[in-house]
Design a protein around this nucleic acid. Structure first.
Lengths: 96, 96
DNA sequence: TAAACACTTAAACGGTTGTTCAATTGTTGT
DNA sequence: ACAACAATTGAACAACCGTTTAAGTGTTTA
């Protein structure tokens, strides 16, 4: 199921942070690593997955590799979700 | 990160099928199990996760337990994604 | 062409997670 | 109260996945 795989790529905290970091601004791999606070190696691993799933698009410019959002659908889905977390209920309850 | 956890719950094929099965219609746990094609036990395991994340809401009626979508946000996100898969590119390519 | 920089790749480890099977709880009917 | 039905729970196991470390590309500058 392709839909589940897409959600799976957004299910990891660091990978999700990487995607969100590329939502509005174009960023180099190094910038992303620094911004998210993880090693360049780990960043690259995640970038490869996001690239081959066509969630992010890459473009080389000099020594650097720049990444942007490639999927408008994922972009709007993230906006909806982030919106929801900010403006709606901020409660923490657990059910029996 | 709460957002990643929500995506994580939608990242498993059978669990995603369960959520989609409850999108428009209210269904009993047994119905869900049959509709998705998995054991009642496995269904219940997944339902517990979806319930405690407030993605699904449960209501007992007689011996049965009925489930419905509880999160309008997830509901619309799923609609966007499913829409996207149906009407946009249906190509299968892999990058080097 | 050699050094320096930016990024990628490969292998390996540890923890998480989906699934199954068996036993248990809760509810209705006789 | 007991049997039958519906759903849940717990333990155990295999498979997957994120992370680290070290070595490897590719590109620019001296």
């Amino acid at each position: 199921m392709e839909l589940a795989e897409t959600f799976g790529l957004l299910a990891d905290p660091t990978r999700l942070s990487i995607v969100i970091a590329c939502m509005e601004v174009e960023r180099s791999a190094g910038d992303i690593a620094e911004h998210v606070g993880v090693s360049p190696s780990l960043t690259s691993h995640h970038l490869r997955l996001l690239r081959s799933a066509r969630i992010l698009r890459s473009e080389r410019r000099g020594k650097q590799m720049f990444y942007t959002m490639a999927d408008a659908c994922v972009h709007s889905v993230l906006n909806i979700m982030i919106d929801h977390l900010f403006f709606h209920d901020h409660d923490t309850v657990d059910d029996p």
